[in-house]
Amino acid sequence: MLELENIQVFYGPVQALHGISLHVDEGEIVTIIGPNGAGKTTTLKTITGLVRSRTGSIKFQGKRIDRLLEDQIVGQGISLVPEGRRVFPRLTVLENLEMGAYLRRSDRAGIQADIKRMYEIFPRLEERKAQLAETLSGGEQQMLAIARALMSRPKLLMLDEPSMGLAPLVVKGIFEIIQKINEEGTTILLVEQNARMALRVADRGYVLRTGEIVMEASAADLMKNESVRRAYLGEGIYSLEKNNGSVAGTGA
């Protein structure tokens, strides 16, 4: 469904992505894990057209999208829940949802139905529909951001760090919803630092480090992988002690 090939991105003289390639198949949940600054967010921004690759290509449903304008890319059915939620602070909850449906604004009835559906998935949003988004709690803002992204009826939903800054219980709820959305037929590309959570829901995963993909495998295999466990699943210190320093340098 989505195919990235040899993507290289530069911020000024600094290269952020060193020719990465990855693919997401229809119906999958794919996750990209990796440390801070590895280029995960940049990868998602490149797909949406907010930043541009110098080389390679991005194909969506067999069609090249890397030269399209941002709004045309959204129009193809790709939606991003950005890092840090980025709800429009001084728009109401309802207005935020409407903005998600901006490209299909002529479809009044459809939008009404979708808003209703969002309220069913996220009942909290209905309670707060007339409030300014900036007055919501972190978890509510994340729900709003996801709901807003769904309002464009995406075929591919991309989420950037949806668990960031949220209480564990809230995170659990969010991931349940992500799975549910997937079950209803939306393909998902998930970027997470909380690798344990991500791998638990994902079918496949990529490990990204300093702008390069260093590993690709099924989520189950990644969960079992020693270096992944050490580096990203919080078992680093334990392993280090057990192996008496022999794995120093794998970088936790």
């Binding site: 709004d71 939606s79 950005p82 903005m99």
Partner: peptide
């Protein structure tokens, strides 16, 4: 309020 996110909305 947020140019980048607005662009993401199309």
């Amino acid at each position: 309020q947020d140019r980048e996110t607005a662009a993401l909305m199309g």
